[in-house]
Design a binder for these strands. Structure first.
Lengths: 208, 208
DNA sequence: TAGATTGTTAATCGATTAACAATC
DNA sequence: TAGATTGTTAATCGATTAACAATC
């Protein structure tokens, strides 16, 4: 239905709207939201139209109502639960990252095959042995997982997650994971991102 | 010139081509490369045409020549140097990540304002105090930086980086950084990525 | 030769942009 | 009212897809 880019923008609108709400600001114009996502006001208006919210001329959009609409679009008013498989540096960094107050992502457990990393609590997140994963997923009904295991363990970890019923995977390992069609994988390829940064920074320099 | 998506694909081709080269495989077909980027062979052929490399029917593309061409496109045969500002969990995770053998990204230094985190070596990467950053950047001529500082310090860190001559920034903090037009910022918004994963996994489940 | 793969061209698709009437 | 902002429509743009001739 919605494109990856649209989702990205809606997520950014949401964060900004929450900030406005906290600041007791009642209305917002499309050009303010446009700044947030580095787009034109027309793109914003189209996005908001698409999720079925109308503003009014001169007044713009009502922050509270629009935020409710965006929440509704994401099927979530409040926090969403995920697990992290791979309690290495990156896994721990993410646990800490989402433990910040204000985050609506809650990491409800970590898993690792290395017993030295299990039976610990990191940023209020308990870390279990990977063997306990199937039971945990079934009992909690969690459907989304972050994978921060080494490349060599990525596919086997994925297979385990899929077999227990996980439907969404955020993959930090530089591998294209094989999954059934009913499982969605989002790849975070940090090396690629740096290469892209370098490429465009050079393009920039050449142009000027 | 090239779009963000094209760059992403070229980066993935490159990684795969290096693997093929290591395995002494001489030729590759567009459909193999297409699998790597989850696209159609036509997209791959178009990409390769765009960077000025031609294959031949039945034989496909010569791995070595194509790899050279892709390297040339990225203006880099071998490793690229970056610094990391913010030696928290995430910064350290990235240092470790890029210290893996095989990575062509080299983190040549870390910087932090917290003296408890400086004057240490993490994954072969020396960590300095932020005050030493301008001198370091000028002496080494490094032009790209990763930012892993807390949101509250992101803009001031950016201003410092820009003033020393950094032209490319990979930003892990959930803030839209203000930079002059000759500086390129690539945002990595992990919260957004999880929200996107969850959204599309739910879409998937509903469709089936 | 036959078959698979390539490069090239045209068609399609989707998203962004531009233009403008409607409205507070 | 005047001005700024909105929703809507049409035009533009770019990327992907489809079709096909060329080639090893």
């Amino acid at each position: 239905l919605a494109s990856r880019k649209t989702i990205e923008r809606l997520s950014l609108y949401r964060r900004y709207l929450k900030m406005l709400k906290d600041g007791r600001i009642e209305n917002v114009y499309s050009h303010k939201l446009a700044d947030v996502v580095a787009e034109t006001p027309a793109v914003v208006r189209r996005d908001l139209m698409n999720i079925g919210y109308s503003g009014s001329p001169k007044l713009g959009y009502k922050v509270n109502e629009l935020l409710s609409k965006v929440d509704e679009f994401f099927h979530s008013k409040d926090e969403v639960k995920v697990i992290i498989v791979g309690v290495g540096n990156l896994g721990r960094a993410l646990m800490q990252y989402f433990a910040m107050k204000g985050s609506n992502i809650k990491v409800i457990a970590g898993f690792d095959a290395d017993t030295r990393k299990t039976n610990r609590v990191i940023s209020n997140c308990h870390c279990y042995h990977i063997n306990d994963l199937p039971k945990f997923v079934k009992e909690t009904g969690v459907t989304n997982s972050i994978i921060t295991v080494p490349e060599s363990a990525a596919q086997i970890t994925t297979d385990l997650l899929v077999s227990t019923g996980i439907k969404g995977i955020l993959n930090f390992s530089p591998t294209r994971l094989k999954v059934p069609t009913d499982v969605y994988v989002e790849d975070v390829d940090i090396t690629m991102m740096i290469e892209r940064t370098i490429y465009f920074s050079m393009e920039n320099s050449m142009r000027t």
